[in-house]
């Protein structure tokens, strides 16, 4: 039973999942509040679709809700949770690729006009310029190979540790480092090409 005096804001992720494993729904709600934006952002940057990112994020939370007892206090909760999210996203994209043969690189920036972008104190011109630039970057990320895209998003956008990325992608630490550098190099080249085109 949930403890009314419990302050969930102070609790760590591992503590929250432990409470949730004891049927504490408030702990689950706290996890949702903490991770929903992170997860939607991660999935959006990985897939390039706002609708898909919300659906996949919700599916990830449902998985967590139904399989809460599968978590063991061996790894960090965030690592385990990102792994679930990435697996669901990959299967989602596989299913999607079977249904339609349209490439992900056909990303239309106008389609995502109603993004709820975090408010920053910028003048309209600057903001317009940054939106255009972010679209270009997103386009470049989408044109990356799947392995490079995942590693770039996890490291340079979500700012996860190398060890965490190693666990999520299930690859050695050295491979993570080398692959990140190669991904950055590729992204740099892609961005150059995009800037030239525009």
């Amino acid at each position: 039973m949930p403890d009314n005096k419990r302050n969930y804001k102070i609790c760590s992720d591992e503590e929250l999942i432990a409470f949730f494993q004891k049927e504490d729904i408030d702990a689950f709600n706290e996890i949702v509040d903490r991770y929903k934006d992170k997860l939607v952002n991660f999935i959006f940057r990985y897939t390039g679709s706002k609708e898909e990112s919300e659906d996949i994020a919700q599916e990830t939370f449902i998985k967590l809700y139904l399989n809460k007892k599968l978590y063991r206090d061996i790894a960090k909760f965030s690592t385990w949770f990102y792994t679930i999210a990435l697996n669901i996203t990959r299967t989602y994209k596989k299913k999607e690729s079977k249904i339609s043969t349209i490439s992900i690189s056909d990303y239309d920036p106008e389609h995502d006009k109603d993004f709820d972008i975090r408010s920053t104190v910028r003048n309209p011109e600057e903001e317009a310029g940054s939106v255009v630039e972010s679209d270009y970057i997103q386009k470049a990320i989408n044109s990356l190979e799947e392995n490079f895209r995942a590693i770039i998003v996890l490291r340079d956008i979500e700012e996860l540790e190398y060890e965490e990325i190693s666990e999520i992608l299930d690859i050695p630490l050295g491979t993570v480092k080398s692959r990140i550098n190669r991904a950055r190099e590729k992204l740099k080249d892609l961005l150059k090409d995009i800037y030239r085109e525009n």
Partner: peptide
Amino acid sequence: YKEIRDKLKKLPKIKA
């Protein structure tokens, strides 16, 4: 790769 890293960090965070 500092330049590209900064660009990626500055990307707008998508909210749910």
